[in-house]
């Protein structure tokens, strides 16, 4: 009985959220619609990183590589080769995923701190490459002049059209990542995070599980990269810099790593902070640094689990007050 009621309230909340997201473009100005589109892209990026950080216990400091490489490939193929978006998008995503195969193989020679250092070193090398390989990347000028695609004749240059496009991709990404997390493979991944030694004694190939996750995470990072370059119509080496990886990571950690909602909330906060606060003080990097230090020291579990715990506590207190049959399991 209670479970049914609970599901209904949950369903109602989802319906409200969906209605709100659909209604946004009709109620708000372009500025806000664009802001939401940016949040969507950041959410895909953070959610893809969360697969590694939150569920695999592998903190990557170089996730911006996948966003950046996919974006650069898209821009370069479009501008220099003149190919159509329909061809470019899969090539950019597959190409970047292949790179994730190689990077994962290198980075997963280590775990823990070594993994962090390797991912950082690899991404910094790519970042340096983006700056210096002027012949391909136009260096510090970045690649500019891309247009957005027009799938089925719907021109994504239109703010609202892009908003819905980004919304759909985000929903698909989150649904796929949610499936992944709740699948047998996802369960095994969480097992390797908590007890890698035990997992291999149970017959699980820990290295392979991690590597496949690394690659899949790179795949969604690449999707975020393609969306990113569509939105900005421009790509610059900074998008591959450590700050860019750090923004994604902050989104994951601030929201709560290892939860599905965490990166959504976290990425939204990071984008909002970047757009609003840094608009006034123009010191985004410093703010980013301070927020990082603050989160790690004072809120290491992140917002979503923190709020969840608070909510459960309140509910438990209410349950005690109502004093009915105990022993119901948490969802």
């Amino acid at each position: 009985m209670t479970a049914g009621v609970l599901d209904k309230t949950k369903l109602a909340w989802w319906a409200v959220l969906a209605a709100a997201l659909v209604a946004v473009p009709f109620l708000m100005g372009d500025f806000y619609i664009n802001l939401l589109s940016q949040i969507f892209i950041a959410v895909i990026f953070a959610a893809s990183l969360n697969m590694l950080v939150g569920y695999g216990g592998l903190t990557s400091l170089g996730h911006a590589s996948y966003l950046g490489v996919a974006a650069y490939m898209s821009a370069w193929l479009f501008l220099k080769m003149g190919w159509s978006h329909l061809v470019i998008a899969p090539i950019a995503i597959i190409g970047t995923t292949l790179m994730a195969c190689a990077f994962g193989w290198i980075a997963l020679r280590a775990t823990g701190l070594g993994f962090m250092m390797l991912t950082l070193a690899l991404s910094q090398v790519l970042w340096g490459l983006a700056y210096r390989w002027v012949g391909v990347t136009d260096g510090d000028n970045g690649l500019r002049g891309l247009t957005r695609p027009a799938p089925f004749g719907i021109d994504l240059e239109n703010t609202t059209a892009f908003y819905f496009f980004a919304l759909i991709v985000t929903v698909v990404a989150l649904a796929m990542i949610s499936r992944f997390v709740h699948s047998p493979f996802g369960a095994a991944l969480k097992g390797t995070r908590d007890q890698p030694r035990r997992m291999s004694a149970l017959g699980h190939n820990v290295w392979m599980i991690r590597w496949l996750t690394f690659v899949y995470s790179g795949f969604w990072g690449a999707v975020a990269g393609v969306m990113f370059v569509y939105y900005n119509k421009y790509i610059h080496p900074t998008s591959m810099a450590l700050t860019s990886s750090a923004e994604g990571l902050l989104g994951v950690i601030a929201g709560g790593s290892g939860t599905l909602a965490g990166p959504v909330v976290g990425a939204a906060i990071v984008v909002l902070l970047k757009n609003y606060v840094s608009g006034y003080v123009e010191r985004w990097n410093m703010l980013l640094g301070f927020v990082f230090v603050f989160i790690v020291i004072f809120m290491p579990e992140g917002l979503v689990p923190g709020m969840h715990r608070l909510w459960n506590k309140l509910r438990a207190r209410k349950a005690v007050r109502d004093s009915n049959t105990g022993g119901r399991e948490k969802a």
Partner: peptide
């Protein structure tokens, strides 16, 4: 379940819910 999965092919399945 993690122990049982260790010997099953389904442990590689990442699209179907474990539940």
């Amino acid at each position: 379940v993690l122990s049982l999965l260790g010997l099953l092919k389904t442990r590689w399945n990442s699209f179907v819910p474990l539940s």
